[in-house]
């Protein structure tokens, strides 16, 4: 009986509360290293919306594979990278999690996010900007916060 209860508790927790994820790829270095195991907390946004600086998991068509990225732009904001610095609504922002200087210049024509959109990017900005997966994630695609 105890084993059955344990299995049910683990299965429910895995599906609805917290689940382990394994990191693949270099885009979140140095915050998350290749092959590290992190935990995805699914209830993080039950009572509030995602916040700037949160590392979140973004789903594809399902949750077999997830993208791990950091939220840098909030709904309605303008996001740009100018000479290796994140600018929000034209103002530079300090990002304490970025450990090494980078040189990105990424100023799109229309950089304003929609009401339901977050701008997400990895912490590894020393990799070339064109090789780095970043972009606009709709709220519905964000499945939870990654516990670091």
């Amino acid at each position: 009986m105890r084993i059955v209860v344990l299995i049910v508790v683990v299965a429910v927790s895995w599906r609805y509360v917290i689940r382990p994820i394994r990191v693949e790829g270099p885009s979140m270095l140095p915050t998350a290293k290749e092959s590290q195991v992190k935990f995805l907390y699914r209830l993080a946004y039950l009572f509030h919306e995602p916040r700037r600086g949160d590392v979140v998991a973004i789903r594809f068509t399902g949750e077999s594979i997830l993208l791990m990225k950091r939220i840098v732009g909030m709904p309605g904001e303008k996001v740009e990278f100018v000479e290796g610095r994140l600018h929000i609504n034209g103002q530079p922002r300090i990002e304490p999690y970025i450990k090494r200087p980078y040189t990105w210049n990424f100023v799109p024509d229309n950089s304003q996010l929609g009401p339901d959109e977050y701008y997400v990017v990895g912490d590894n900005r020393i990799m070339p900007e064109e090789n780095h997966t970043k972009g606009v994630a709709r709220r519905a695609k964000i499945v939870g916060r990654v516990l670091l």
Binding site: I58, L67, P108, N110, L113, T133, G135, V136, K141
Partner: peptide
Amino acid sequence: LIQRVETLKTLASL
């Protein structure tokens, strides 16, 4: 039979 294949963007561009 497959009539069309297209890629979708998980993260949209600005």
